[in-house]
Design a protein around this nucleic acid. Structure first.
Length: 763
DNA sequence: GATTTACGCCTTTTT
DNA sequence: GGCGTAAATC
């Protein structure tokens, strides 16, 4: 196969680029994967590069796999060396499994995913025993990750990111890092950081790998973060052959530390870099490209390129507004049915801003009998039973992995209760030892009562047994041994409903199959665990699925004949938490651009003013997304806001009210913002809204008055509860948006109740 | 120690 | 409104 055949002039220039750094600015659908694949082939075929000296980095496993297949198609499958095509994270794991002893870890380190991180953080928070420490593990994790990605160590934290909780975060951050190291474990961020660390601190390693990888190619360069950038710098310090492909208009991972500046100032970072723009789009119709371009043009943080295509102008874009999220989903499902009836081979995607939106679409599609695949709901490797079994493998593989140990120490129940676990963790903490080692001691300690030590000893013997057979048996066999010895399946049958247990057993079988397959490929237990840690749901997307449901983020890099962009409302898209700064809005806009440009032939956009929040309705009507208004209006049909009253006579009362509320409330500018802030419990009318706000003001004067009409309870009052009977109010205080009452009932004693829900009667 | 009940958090996006 | 973990209860 001729490597250069079928390439357009710009693609060809990129593929034929010689030595030195190069930046390919590739718009959506302009063939960037193609360019990388062909360049790899070109390096091997025309520049006499040895395949094993080539490293290509992608962001997802799926992209890596596809790249590998494409390269093989062009150069043919060679039995000798192949170029290394992998994600940043798996490249780092590979590097570290060989070299990490240089920086004080053991080769069989564990990888902690978000769930493991959360467990560790929670453990640390518990040990602090400090009631003033009021931070959620989630918050801590995201702050630690942010710090790590910006090269800020625990001792620099307060100085670099001052805030009210900085001291607490700094302390926990330090603890967290120490505990990770003690458990011989790395989190996702560490995989990159420790790789950088290694190459910095160990000149021989830097020289070796820098020299080894003569050509490095990076896909989706706009999404690289700082550690990734540093890693690339170190790896290219010898040959300087860094070839990156990216599109600043598709940079959507700022929240994960991606720095759009990496692509914007590439020429500064790598002097003499050649810049190549790919502007011809092969994917979408002209109309789709025009609206995509019109949206992203509103951004300032971009280099600017204009996509063009030889494709037809195509269909007009269809916008549709429904009266509820359910009906929005129903409408989408109906259109999908039409599309599939017309062309059964059509690939359709429903794209949304946040995962929780998938539910309505799943229901609607199921109702209409349309098969679909969801990306990113509950990932296979994060299912409870799968994680349990992997934790067993981890503890055999890395006996210092405390998080894995604590996960399964009493699952299934084996008589090691909370008291025993507390004793072990405390001793381990005091003596800086892995919990398993302390457990070994306590299991044989004559001072420990039999009641505690016997189960410990039995558990230890099991672990020893598995460790012993690990040498001689396959991963699948080891898993079977664990399942038998622990009676894990029996536990599921006992604890779960029949269908649930069956489901989980099927997952276990699937895991064993995956283990067997992994072994067939010649992988070790470490490879298998690494794969499980770094796998993502996207990797399992069935390419034959006609209808795919996923977030806009997951959709990057994919294409579909027909795309539905759902939930196009202010507050959802752009998301309310990304509306404060222009920088955030620009990222949301890029996300919108990504969504639009996934479509090849036809784009539908839907929204609803009356989406439910957590169950209750939002309490105000959402407005159409500003991004809709940025699109050329002549290319879209159905943009006008419909009249709800006439369309739905059968729901007249409800929608009359909702519609009236919408119109009236939107006239009162400023109220909307206020409602948002205070999370008003559903104002039904403007009068009620005003009453609420007035009452609120009075309340702030005379601190602590009630939120809604009705009797106001005070300490000392006698009250009656439907279930608990009569009692006396002891105290009344505000907690968040609610009023909490503590009432002493004569029959059932002291209870705390939420005033709004308790249905108390004054006596 | 297991089963039941309460509450708290969630809904931004992920390797 | 729903799920998972933490406390309360048996």
């Amino acid at each position: 196969m001729d490597i250069l055949a079928g390439l357009n002039p710009q693609q060809r220039i990129a593929v034929e680029h010689g030595q030195g750094p190069a930046l390919v600015l590739a718009g959506a659908g302009s063939g960037k994967t193609r360019v990388i694949a062909h360049r790899i082939a070109y390096l091997i075929g025309n520049m006499a590069a040895r395949p094993e000296n080539i490293l290509a980095v992608t962001f997802t496993n799926k992209a890596a796999r596809e790249m590998r297949e494409r390269v093989q198609k062009i150069v043919g499958v060679s039995r000798s060396a192949e170029p290394l095509i992998s994600t940043f994270h798996s490249f780092c794991v590979r590097l570290l499994r060989r070299e990490i002893p240089h920086i004080g870890y053991k080769r069989d380190f564990s990888i902690y995913d978000t769930d493991d991180q959360k467990r560790l953080i929670r453990q640390i928070l518990d040990e602090e025993k400090n009631p003033d420490l009021d931070i959620s593990p989630r918050e801590v994790i995201s702050r630690i990750s942010y710090a790590k990605n910006h090269g800020v160590s625990p001792d620099q934290y307060t100085a670099r990111f001052p805030s009210q909780i900085a001291d607490d975060v700094q302390h926990i951050y330090g603890q967290y890092n120490a505990r990770l190291q003690q458990s011989n474990s790395l989190d996702f961020d560490d995989l990159l950081l420790k790789s950088v660390d290694l190459l910095r601190k160990v000149p021989e390693a830097r020289k070796y790998y820098g020299d080894w990888y003569k050509y490095i190619l990076v896909d989706e360069y706009q999404d690289t973060n700082r550690p990734q950038y540093e890693l690339l710098r170190l790896l290219t310090s010898v040959h300087k052959n860094l070839f990156v492909v990216g599109d600043e208009d598709q940079s959507i991972y700022k929240f994960r530390g991606a720095d759009i500046q990496n692509i914007l100032k590439f020429e500064k970072d790598f002097p003499g870099a050649r810049i190549i723009k790919l502007e011809q789009n092969y994917r979408s119709s002209q109309n789709i490209l025009r609206i995509a371009g019109a949206v992203v043009e509103n951004n300032t943080e971009r280099k600017g390129k204009t996509l063009w295509t030889e494709n037809d102008s195509g269909d007009i874009i269809t916008c549709h507004c429904e009266k509820s999220a359910r009906e929005e989903a129903g409408w989408v499902a109906s259109r999908i049915r039409e599309v599939l009836l017309e062309n059964p081979d059509c690939h359709v995607a429903v794209l949304y801003r946040a995962n929780f939106l998938s539910r309505n679409f799943e229901d609607a599609l199921t109702e209409k009998g349309i098969p679909y695949a969801v990306v990113g709901s509950v990932a296979f490797f994060s299912r409870m039973e799968v994680k349990d079994l992997l934790a067993y493998l981890r503890i055999v593989f890395n006996p210092e992995d405390d998080v894995a140990l604590l996960r399964i120490i009493n699952t299934p129940p084996r008589g090691i209760g909370n008291a025993a676990i507390d004793m072990l963790t405390e001793a381990a903490l005091n003596r800086n030892l892995p919990i398993l080692q302390v457990l070994r001691e306590k299991a044989r300690d004559p001072q420990v009562s039999r009641r505690f030590s016997r189960p410990l000893l039995r558990f230890q013997e099991l672990v020893d047994k598995w460790t012993a057979i690990q040498e001689s048996s396959s991963i699948a066999q080891l898993l079977e041994a664990v399942l038998n010895d622990t009676q894990y399946r029996e536990m599921l049958q006992k604890q779960e409903t029949a269908t649930e247990a069956e489901n989980r057993m099927a997952n276990i079988d699937e895991l064993i199959r995956a283990a067997a397959e992994s072994e067939e490929r010649g992988e070790t237990i470490a490879d298998f665990l690494d794969r499980a840690s770094l796998a993502s749901e996207l990797d399992h997307l069935d390419p034959n699925a006609r209808v795919a449901l996923m977030t806009l983020h997951s959709a990057k890099g994919l294409e579909f004949d027909v795309v539905f962009l759902a939930g196009m409302e202010e507050g959802l898209f752009p998301h309310s938490q990304s509306m404060d700064s222009n920088e955030d809005i620009e990222e949301e806009r890029r996300l919108c651009y990504v969504g639009i440009t996934r479509a090849k032939r036809k784009l539908f956009i839907t929204w609803t003013p009356f989406r439910k929040n957590y169950g209750p309705e939002a309490g105000f009507a959402s407005k159409m997304s500003r991004f809709l208004k940025e699109m050329p209006q002549d290319l879209i049909e159905g943009l006008d806001e419909p009249d709800y009253f006439d369309q739905r006579p059968q729901h007249r009362s409800y929608f009359h009210e909702a519609g009236a509320r919408y119109e009236e409330i939107s006239k009162h500018k400023g109220y909307q913002a206020k409602i948002r802030e205070e999370e008003l419990p559903q104002p039904k009318t403007i009068a009620e809204l005003k009453a609420y706000l007035q009452q609120k003001e009075r309340a702030s004067e005379a601190a602590g008055s009630g939120a809604s009409a009705g009797p106001v309870f005070k300490a000392g009052m006698r009250v009656r509860h439907e279930q608990f009977g009569e009692g006396i109010v002891l105290s009344r205080e505000r907690t968040g948006n609610d009023i909490k009452l503590v009432v002493a009932f004569s029959r059932v004693g002291k209870k705390s109740l939420i005033e709004r829900y308790a249905k108390l009667k004054a006596l």
